[in-house]
Structures are given as C-alpha cells and as structure tokens.
Design a protein around this nucleic acid. Structure first.
Lengths: 107, 107
DNA sequence: AATATATATCGTAAATTTTCGATATGCAAC
DNA sequence: GTTGCATATCGAAAATTTACGATATATATT
C-alpha cells in the first residue's frame, strides 16, 4: 500500500540540481525564518512569503526569481498558495528532511 | 587554534555543484563498496580504485571521466594516490560526513 | 633510446542553465 | 470596461557545463 515514501533517483537528481544554485539555497534559507528576513511584509507570514519580497531580496529580475521559485517548487522543496493577486511561498519541511535522509544514505 | 572545521559557503557551493551530476554521484557510490563494483582490479583495493576501472564503468571517454574525478577531488570528496603509472581514487569519508552535517543545518 | 600504457590537460563543439526584457494572465480598484 | 499591480511565461543572449578527440606527460618495458 505504498508505505514506502522513497524518492526516485530522477527526483533526487532534480532536487540536488535545484540546490546547486546559490540563490536558490539563499531563498530556502530565508524562508526558514521569514520573521527575520521578511519582517516588513504586510500580509501575515503564516501564509508564506510573497514572491515580490523575494524578488527584492535577491536583486535579480522578477522573471528570473519567478523561474528560481518554480525550480524549487518542481523539486518539491517549497509550495505556493495563491491569495488574490499574490503568491505566497513556504518551505516543505517534511520534504527537506526526507531529502536529507535520502542523500545521507545514498551518498 | 583553528578547532573550527567549518567549510566556507564557497566550499559548500563547490561541493554541491560536484554532486549535481549523476555520474559523479555514481562514482562516489561505487567507491563506497569497491569490492562490489571493482572486484576485477588486479591491484589491492585498499590503495583505492584505479582511474581506468572507473572509466570503463561509466562508459564515458577517458578524458571526460578524468575531469569528473578532478571535480570530485577539488570538492574534497575523494583523494588520489599515484602509484607507478596509475592513479588510485578513494573516498574521504570524513569530508563526506562533514558535508552532510553542514548541509543538514544550513538547509 | 624506442615503444607501450595510464592519466592529465588542451581546444572546441554541443547541451544546459541563467538571466533579462517583453508580453501574457489574472485579479482588484476605479 | 479600463487601469494598475503581481506573477508567470516566452524568446533570446550570455555564461557555464559537459563531452570528445588529440596531445602532453610520466612511468614502465623491451
């Protein structure tokens, strides 16, 4: 009954590639403590962090950051919730933990 | 007195990039159990695994594999010992463990 | 010395990734 | 419905990575 929650090697590959860009690791880190890095957000941080705020922090263009966020999301590290015209991003802690466990024993 | 054995963020970046290619992860894995994957090696496996044996296993060209091995070595994951005309590669288990620990709390 | 073998390095072509500006889409306010 | 704002997607240029064959280097054998 699919109790086994192991990721395929293709998924692992996608995840490692997602981590292989410093800006994407930065984003993941910022999302770890939104109250530290995004204290100025009007909307409650509990929903997640607004894409625009992340754009600002990176200094990269809106479209580039949008692509980075999509990469992180495809890898499963983050999710987005759409509220009105905004997208709010937050970490999937379980996926991250699972990834680390998998990497630890596959490496 | 430099008790702190923490890697810089540039080093971490180099290490993650080194892992971001499936062939390099394969190599690291093969080197984990040389007796399983390189049972046919004439020289004692305790010295490490001969570059040529790794070439064969990947199916890639000699020069390409040499470059992959250099990448893994620059990242610190493996070391090489030169004996005669051969280069023998082996894992740096301590570095790998240290990397995993660092990644686990930085991610 | 000449030859053979193992590996590293060089130059380069192909593939992939990163980035941007422009545009499209979707929602909100007027 | 038009205007404004937030985000996603598109198309293309630039940068980086991967791969190869050719060559260099170094050791071993004859």
């Amino acid at each position: 009954m699919d109790m086994d929650e192991t990721m395929s090697s293709a998924e692992l590959d996608e995840m490692i590639k997602a981590l292989s860009h410093p800006v994407r690791r930065d984003i993941l880190n910022w999302l770890k403590q939104p109250e530290v890095y995004f204290a100025d957000q009007e909307h409650p941080l509990s929903i997640g962090v607004c894409a625009g705020k992340i754009d600002q922090k990176t200094g990269l263009s809106q479209s580039t950051v949008s692509a980075h966020l999509a990469t992180l999301q495809r890898a499963g590290f983050i999710s987005s919730k759409k509220v009105g015209q905004w997208s709010f991003f937050s970490r999937n802690e379980d996926v991250i933990q699972h990834f680390l466990a998998r990497l630890t024993d596959q490496l």
